[in-house]
Design a binder for these strands. Structure first.
Lengths: 249, 249
DNA sequence: GATCGATGTTGATGCAGGTCAACGATTCGG
DNA sequence: CCGAATCGTTGACCTGCATCAACATCGATC
């Protein structure tokens, strides 16, 4: 399962960036020609296979990542094995923001993909030289913090059904941002991973998924993709009636 | 309960900052003379009473705050009144990082205090001119994000006793950072607020507090302060045995 | 320092979701 | 294409914490 990442030194040109499909979703989207070249110089372009470990909780925090393809799971463990997944990353997402001397989380690929990897010391220097990038990173951090607050509300106060519905609404939003229509949702993660993200068990996730299916709110297309049939009902179940989430009802 | 904050326009000098006891704990700690003067120019120095509302969830996000004295509660609500407290702020903490166009949380004073209040548009401009400040803010955001991840683990996977113990360890750490010895801990918040922070009920918080007291792990000095008698035991109960938390055992 | 509303504690009981168990569906290496 | 391991679903039962209720304590106010 856990292999080593394949690194190839940056080519030094911004060509890789020019053709990078994740750029418009990423912090580097704010940079122009020269900045991209500079950033790319410091980047290792790595690829990873499903199940590969990018970061291990407790290890010295030496690198930062910009996910360019694939999906990544970020989680924390208790000593007895209880697991909390604190996020799922997709292309454009930044990995390593919430990092001190050591990683406080592990990161593992759900699906094969690729990333730009930076040595932390290099990245620090680059940030000093490029305030625009630092600004973009701060905006990203603010957004992540807001998402973390939402997740705290979910974990602390929502019922199992509300959690699942909120999760699906979140996936739908992300799908729309990535260019989809928001009805078709991919589930690259397993039920166990959904459970560990929502603070539930696989059984509870499964039961509530069935309930949503039975009620006609969603339709399972395969084990790892579904279609949202009644978005407004899903929003209600998520406990978000009042909040503006931009889903056509 | 909810009153208006008392604002007095910044004096334009950095004198206020020079004598500000929160500065060494705050993002403005990185600034020198000229930067402080500039920042202070943009600041309203406000004071607030216990119970006063600084920010209301859903309102347009017009201001940012730097807490200089007192304690503040930050929370989110569901439409039926369920509440999740996402953080308690003390002097030196920044309020408003995780903010888009509208506040996604409410903030209310637990105790009388004061803050530097900035108009968001002004602060943005200042950040452009002072990369050091932006950098400090990014570090602060990274730290907050890490804390949020810890809280997700707590809310998603810890038992009631582990949550309470973790909470007390956190308060102890903060007390030490503020200059105390870490044994004496102030609880400026009510049991209900602790419960809403830990995803529990007041009853469960109360029962587990009693258990800790009975076991001799803590000693209640008053309703709103306690002493940690067995720090190592508390750490164990918090499920942090392995993690380095810098408490003398 | 007496009064009263707010806050905290303790006990009895209920239930949402966890646990345990059995079985069906999917996936992937050969 | 086959078989084994993994993943997902469903059912029966259990438990940790919520809920409901009664009482104790605190602290602000006059």
């Amino acid at each position: 399962m856990t292999g080593t990442t394949t690194a190839c030194a940056g080519a030094g040109s911004a060509e890789v960036c020019a053709s990078c499909s994740a750029r418009r979703l990423s912090v580097c989207g704010v940079l122009e020609q020269e900045g991209l070249r500079r950033l790319n110089e410091a980047a290792d372009h790595i690829t990873f296979r499903a199940g590969e470990v990018l970061v291990r909780e407790g290890d010295p925090a030496t690198h930062l990542f910009n996910i360019t393809a694939g999906d990544v799971r970020v989680h924390k463990l208790l000593s007895d094995g209880r697991r909390q997944i604190v996020g799922f990353l997709s292309p454009g997402d930044f990995l390593g923001l919430a990092t001190g001397d050591r990683y406080a989380f592990s990161a593992e690929a759900l699906a094969p993909g690729s990333a730009c990897r930076f040595r932390k010391v290099d990245y620090r220097k680059i940030l000093r030289e490029m305030p625009d990038l630092e600004h973009a990173l701060l905006e990203r951090a603010a957004h992540e913090l807001k998402a973390a607050h939402d997740q705290m509300l979910l974990l602390g106060r929502k019922t199992a059904m509300e959690r699942l519905a909120s999760f699906l609404v979140g996936l739908s939003d992300r799908a729309r941002r990535a260019g989809g229509d928001g009805r078709l949702v991919a589930l690259p993660m397993t039920r166990a991973e959904i459970a560990d993200y929502l603070g539930l068990t696989t059984e509870t996730v499964s039961r509530n998924t069935t309930r949503l299916k039975t009620r006609g709110v969603i339709r399972l297309l395969s084990m790892h993709s579904l279609s949202i049939e009644r978005p407004s009902e899903l929003l209600q179940l998520a406990g978000l009636e009042a909040e503006a989430v931009g889903v056509a009802t």
